[in-house]
Design a protein around this nucleic acid. Sequence first.
DNA 1: ATCGCGACCTGGTTGC
DNA 2: TGCAACCAGGTCGCGA
Length: 303
Amino acid sequence: MPELPEVETVREGLERHVVGRTVESVTVLHPRPVRRDLRGPAGFGAALTGRRFIAVRRRGKYLWLPLDSGDALLGHLGMSGQLVVQPPGSPDERHLRVRFVLSRSVEDRAQRASRDHVHGPVELRFVDQRMFGGLSISDGGAELPPEIAHIARDPFDPAFDEDLFVGRVRRRTAGIKRLLLDQTLISGVGNIYADEALWRAELHGERSGDRLRPIQVRRVLAEARAVMRAALVQGGTSFDALYVNVNGESGYFDRSLHAYGRESLPCDRCGTPIRRVEFMNRSSFFCPRCQPVPRVRRVPPRD
DNA sequence: ATCGCGACCTGGTTGC
DNA sequence: TGCAACCAGGTCGCGA
């Protein structure tokens, strides 16, 4: 379940191993992951062949790789996506969907020789069991793909506007968890870190945005930052070399979770069993004592 | 504009 | 042992 920390870990890996390389060939093994690209699988591959990756950027859970053409390769990992860098010839992953064979230019080889000892071709592979994720080419999207212009800045973006976020949350009637998951308000937060941030802030996810004090919104934002920062530090150390993992490192971080996935286990603060409830067709975990359900029930408007 | 829900996907796990 | 139901959840699109 890649959220911001996992995606940032992938970004760093790609920056190290893919930037500067040129696309020699592209093989789309399943059409679904490139469904958003109107060129179709063949056109997608043709448009990328011969292009060079010049950077890797991220906003929230989206990644994009600006190309030497001014366009960009835009990607989202969805629920189960991975981007891995492998030596050519290594066995295909079970759910390999797209393969990019990358070469390294002579000038780039000289430039980066001290940072990266892999000189031969490598493969960038998009692996995705459930295929909620995808790749597409964003025309002119090097700076910021227009497809994701509606996504808010994430809390690690230096230009993230905290006052703006607080103001927008406090004008909304939806529960704070739903608002944390709204990528147009704040990006990068998913179900796991939303629950963790709320546990740390001692707020129930159903508390309406417009009934929260500014300091409470600031608190949950600070906790979201803190928990994602901690995950990022751990995730960043869980791989090196060529293998850029997405799912693997969440296992490391499991041990640091206080709410998510801990149904019936004692709250680490007060010992009360953690509760699990259905929410938005998924699960929410919270401590019923530290995070009391709001007294005034939010009722959806009738008629 | 905002809210809240269902659809999209696959495969590992659970229960009968 | 076999099979079906359930569960994981990010994002989009829709109706209200």
